[in-house]
């Protein structure tokens, strides 16, 4: 249970970074922390204390109760790749923003009214 709570704490740290920090790169780091907190949470839902990898070897008997659920792990792999794509795009956009505005400070990047 405490592990779930840690994932929540991590999520809140990410939200703090995203909302409070003024620097674009720090905002992106906050976003990365949020994504990882969600990924960690999903991994935990499939975890079983003392469980084994769900691989059947010859002569072994299948005992589903002993296995760790592999599906969340497959999902998280996909989700990590998606996160990588988004973060790469965000960093590329921030580099271009720096070229145009000469700053990473969001309080100075305000051409749009929102």
């Amino acid at each position: 249970m405490s592990l779930y709570f840690m994932a929540l704490v991590l999520f809140c740290i990410g939200v703090y970074g995203l909302v409070v920090k003024k620097n674009l790169i720090k905002k992106i780091i906050g976003l990365v922390i949020i994504e990882n907190a969600v990924n960690l949470f999903l991994i935990l839902t499939g975890f079983r204390t003392g469980g084994e990898a769900p691989i059947l070897e010859r002569g072994m008997e299948a005992v589903p109760e002993h296995f760790v659920d592999p599906l969340p792990q497959a999902m998280i792999l996909t989700s990590i790749v998606i996160g990588l794509g988004v973060i790469a795009l965000l960093v590329a956009i921030s580099v271009r923003i720096y070229e145009k505005y000469g700053t990473f400070d969001v309080t100075k990047i305000t051409e749009l009214k929102g």
Binding site: L18, L31, E35, L90, I93, I97, K100, T110, L112
Partner: peptide
């Protein structure tokens, strides 16, 4: 351009959230 990048950044951050 300046506006496009700013808009895209906001959109991408909120979309990812």
């Amino acid at each position: 351009e300046r506006q496009e990048l700013e808009a895209a950044f906001r959109y991408a951050v909120l979309g990812t959230l």
